[in-house]
C-alpha cells in the first residue's frame, strides 16, 4: 500500500485509489472515536476524518502544519479528544496540554489521557489562562477550536501567556458562533484584523483558508507573534 508522509507524523494512505488521511496509532488495536484502523507492513494507522477534525481539514487544505514529533502543544477546546488523539499520535516525543471546560466532555478526554502518556488534561476555561498558568509551560504551538464569540481574544491572551516567541498559533474560526447572519467572509476579515492589530499582542497571519467542504463557514488560520525588529 502506498504511504506518503505529508508532514511529520501525518500520512496519506492510498487504498484502492482512495486517499485516506491517517496517523500512526500510538496504542495499536484501539480506535478512539470509531475511526478505521489500517495495518500495513506491521504498522497500524488510524484513519483521520477531516470532517470530524478542523486540523485534519487543514492538512487536506494544504496548510503547512507546524508540528514535529517533539513539539509541545496547548490545545484549547479539546472536547472528547478526537483531534487531540491524532496530535498525540504525531507527537511521539512531545506533550499536549488539552484544555476543555465542559466537565461532561472532559470525562471522555480523561479516558483518552489514561491510555496515552503524552496528553495532560486540564478542566478550565480558556478565557482564564491565569487559572492554568501554574501548569502549562511555554509551548511551540497553540491550537484553538473553541467555537466561541470571542475566539480571537482567547487566542491572543493564551498566546501572550504561553506561546514561545517563534511558536505558531493555529486557529479554527467558526463564523456562526460570532454572528449567525452576517456573511462569513466579512466576519473572517474582521477576526483577522483583530489578530493583526486588535490586541496588545499582534500576530502575523501566515496562512488562511476556509475549511470547506469539510467544515462549512469555518476559517483555518496559522499565525505567529509579530516581533518588531527594533525593540
Amino acid at each position: 500500500m502506498p504511504v506518503k508522509e505529508l508532514h511529520s507524523g501525518i500520512y496519506e494512505l492510498d487504498i484502492d485509489d482512495r486517499k485516506i488521511l491517517a496517523t500512526k496509532n500510538m496504542i495499536p488495536g484501539t480506535s478512539v472515536y470509531g475511526e478505521r484502523l489500517i495495518s500495513d507492513d506491521g504498522i497500524e494507522y488510524r484513519q483521520w476524518d477531516p470532517c470530524r477534525s478542523k486540523l485534519g481539514a487543514m492538512v487536506l487544505r494544504n496548510f503547512d502544519i507546524p508540528l514535529d514529533a517533539d513539539s509541545t502543544v496547548l490545545y484549547l477546546g479539546a472536547a472528547s479528544g478526537t483531534t487531540v488523539s491524532h496530535i498525540s499520535d504525531i507527537l511521539m516525543d512531545g506533550l499536549i496540554y488539552a484544555v476543555e471546560f465542559s466537565p461532561r466532555t472532559m470525562r471522555d478526554l480523561i479516558q483518552l489521557c489514561d491510555q496515552r502518556p503524552n496528553i495532560i488534561p486540564i478542566l478550565a476555561d480558556a478565557n482564564k489562562p491565569q487559572s492554568y498558568a501554574h501548569i502549562v509551560e511555554k509551548v511551540d504551538m497553540i491550537f484553538q477550536d473553541v467555537a466561541q464569540p470571542n475566539q480571537a481574544e482567547i487566542a491572543a491572551i493564551n498566546s501572550k501567556y504561553f506561546l514561545e516567541e517563534h511558536g505558531h498559533l493555529m486557529l479554527s474560526i467558526k463564523s456562526r458562533s460570532i454572528d449567525t447572519v452576517a456573511s462569513p467572509k466579512k466576519i473572517f476579515k474582521e477576526e483577522v484584523r483583530k489578530l493583526e492589530s486588535g490586541f496588545d499582542i499582534e500576530f502575523e497571519v501566515l496562512e488562511r483558508k476556509e475549511l470547506d467542504p469539510f467544515h462549512e463557514d469555518h476559517l483555518g488560520l496559522v499565525a505567529q507573534i509579530f516581533v518588531d525588529e527594533e525593540d
Binding site: 466537565p103 480523561i110 478542566l123 501548569i135
Partner: peptide, 23 residues
C-alpha cells in the same frame, strides 16, 4: 516532569469532574 505532571493533572481533573458531574 511529564510523568508526574500528567498524573497530577489526571487526578485533579477527575476530582473536579466528580464534584460537578456524575450524571
Amino acid at each position: 516532569y511529564d510523568v508526574l505532571l500528567r498524573e497530577v493533572c489526571i487526578r485533579a481533573a477527575k476530582s473536579q469532574i466528580s464534584r460537578t458531574d456524575s450524571d
